[in-house]
C-alpha cells in the first residue's frame, strides 16, 4: 500500500510537523518505499502469536511511595526558551 499525500499531511499534523507542498510529495514517496519494505512482514504467519512489546519477561518493578526529589526549578529553567516567575511560557492556549 502506498502512502498518499493526504496521509502525509495527516501524520505530519498529528506529529506537529509542518511540511511544505514539495515536502509532502517527497515524504509520500519516501514513506511509501518504507511501507513496501515493512509490508514484507505479511510473509510471516502470525495467527495465534501473542504480541511482544518488551524484550524481557520481567514484571514491572514498583517503588516505595516516598518523596525523594528536591526543588531544582531554577536549574531546570535555565535552559527554558521562555519562563517567568517560575512558569514556562507558551503562546496563549485557547480551550
Amino acid at each position: 500500500m502506498s502512502v498518499t499525500e493526504k496521509d502525509v499531511r495527516y501524520v505530519a499534523n498529528l506529529a506537529r510537523l509542518s511540511v511544505s507542498d514539495d515536502e509532502v510529495k517527497f515524504y509520500a514517496d519516501n514513506l511509501s518505499r518504507i511501507v513496501a519494505l515493512v509490508e514484507q512482514m505479511n510473509d510471516a504467519q502470525t495467527d495465534n502469536v501473542e504480541p511482544l512489546s518488551h524484550p524481557q519477561d520481567a514484571p514491572l518493578r514498583l517503588r516505595e511511595d516516598r518523596v525523594t526529589e528536591v526543588d531544582q526549578r531554577d536549574d531546570f529553567q535555565k535552559v527554558a526558551p521562555a519562563a517567568s516567575d517560575g512558569l514556562y511560557l507558551v503562546p496563549k492556549v485557547i480551550e
Binding site: V38, M41, N42, T46, V49, P51, L52, S53
Partner: peptide, 8 residues
C-alpha cells in the same frame, strides 16, 4: 503485526 513478529 510487528510485535507478533518480534515474538517469533
Amino acid at each position: 503485526k510487528a510485535l507478533k513478529l518480534r515474538r517469533l
